[in-house]
Amino acid sequence: MTCRELAEKIEKLQPDASPQDVARLCLLLTNSHRDVSALGDLVELQSAWRQIGLRLQLATDQHAAMTHELEELASSDPKEFSQEQVWVLIRAIKVQSQILQMYVGHPLLDV
């Protein structure tokens, strides 16, 4: 299956999707499946789409929560960081790596 064919299937399933959303879904779906030709099956495509949607929603929610924590952290003096504030930074790095991993399609270094 080519990216164009996958994009056409996505557009049929979600006709109101923007070109950016279709491209994003193509990338996420192809990165999550070793056998991209399996996505030609409508049932398999819908299942993969739901799984990717859930993973993306989870990552988005985590990112939003982490952004809030980082904004609070940015207003404090780095010289005075507590152990908890350092853990906020570490969690932020993990969240960012999870999102990046979804888009590049292979595991990154385990932080």
Rank of each mutant, 00 (worst) to 15 (best):
E8M: 05
Q96V: 14
S32A: 15
Q83F: 12
E8A: 15
I10N: 03
E8Q: 12
S82G: 08
L54K: 13
P15E: 04
V88A: 08
K12I: 09
E84H: 01
M102E: 15
H63F: 14
V36Y: 02
H63D: 13
V95N: 08
L25F: 11
L45S: 02
D61V: 07
R4V: 06
K9G: 03
E69W: 07
K94N: 09
S18I: 06
D21G: 00
D41K: 07
I99M: 15
R50F: 01
R55Q: 15
L25P: 06
L100H: 13
K79V: 04
T60H: 12
E44D: 02
G53K: 07
F81W: 12
I10F: 03
N31T: 07
L54N: 14
R24E: 12
E72P: 02
L29M: 10
C26N: 09
R55T: 11
H68M: 08
A17S: 15
H63Y: 14
A64S: 14
L29K: 01
E84G: 04
Q85M: 03
Q98H: 14
S32T: 09
A17R: 03
S97A: 15
L89C: 13
Q96T: 12
S47A: 12
L89D: 04
F81G: 01
I93M: 13
L6I: 06
S37I: 04
V36D: 00
G105V: 06
K79Y: 04
A64Q: 15
V22P: 06
I90F: 13
F81H: 08
I99G: 15
Q51R: 12
E72Q: 12
L42C: 02
P15R: 01
E84Q: 08
T60M: 12
V86P: 05
N31V: 02
L25C: 05
I52R: 09
T60G: 12
A65W: 05
T2E: 04
H33R: 14
A17I: 09
